[in-house]
Computed example of a mutant assay.
Amino acid sequence: MKAAVLVIDMLNDFVTGKLGNERVRSVIDPLQHLLERARASGVPVVYIGDAHLPSDPEMAVWGPHAMKGTKEAETIPELAPQPGDTVLEKRTYSAFYETGLDLLLRSLGVDTVVITGLHTNICCRHTAADAFTHGYKIIVPEDCVNAFTEEEHREGIAYLRRVYGARITTSEELAREWEREPQTAATKA
């Protein structure tokens, strides 16, 4: 059994840009720590972020944001990908939809995804739905995800637990498990 950490939409536009808000900054420190432990324990890290085209369906809902090739679509400097990490682009809410993520995870032997990033009730939720239908176990460190409001975040966490059987934990708990049992610890869903 093998886990991978998915870092979803930790982009300039969602932290300090057009769709940014102060709430999302709360995930940066815990996520930095979790990523350090993951890398040290041999757990693959995959960044999946919006890189929109003008014709993407989300433009009708949110307006232009995180447009492909712009600074706004780049990962925030505090969480910049490191050598050995994988970076994928997405154009819809799910990190799985037409990104090659499933093929990548299967090639790495991954059977469990650790979902982190933004937003608990939107992109994390849609990613969890596709992870579930593809047969992956799901772990969500609650301090490494957030939403526009506390209510949306809480509803998102409850939905992930109830509908997909996600194991809700913390970054500290996962880090301790990875220290004790590198590479397979996160699969105790």
Results as ranks from 00 to 15, higher is better:
L53Q: 09
A66L: 08
E78I: 13
G117Y: 11
K90H: 12
A3H: 01
P141W: 06
G109S: 09
D85A: 13
D143H: 04
T169P: 02
I48K: 00
P182D: 00
A66Q: 03
E89M: 12
I76W: 06
E179G: 12
A51T: 12
L103H: 04
T86I: 13
R162T: 12
A175W: 06
A60Y: 05
E22I: 03
T170W: 04
I139H: 00
H52C: 08
A73H: 05
G109C: 12
C144H: 04
L34A: 12
D85F: 14
M1G: 00
L101S: 00
N12L: 10
R23D: 13
I76L: 09
V61N: 02
T184P: 00
E22K: 05
R39K: 07
M59C: 00
R154G: 00
L6H: 09
G100D: 03
N12F: 10
E155M: 11
T75F: 15
E89G: 08
L174S: 11
R176L: 15
T75A: 14
F96D: 03
L6P: 03
A166W: 06
A3W: 00
A129R: 04
V140S: 02
V46P: 00
I139Y: 06
K90W: 15
S94T: 09
F14Q: 02
K71I: 14
T149M: 13
T184W: 03
T99K: 04
Y136E: 00
H153L: 14
V87F: 14
V5Y: 07
S41N: 11
T99S: 01
V163N: 03
F148G: 05
Q82C: 02
I168N: 08
R23E: 12
V145I: 15
E98G: 00
A51N: 07
L34Q: 12
S107E: 08
T184E: 06
P77C: 00
F96T: 02
T70H: 09
S171P: 05
C144R: 04
G63F: 01
E173F: 09
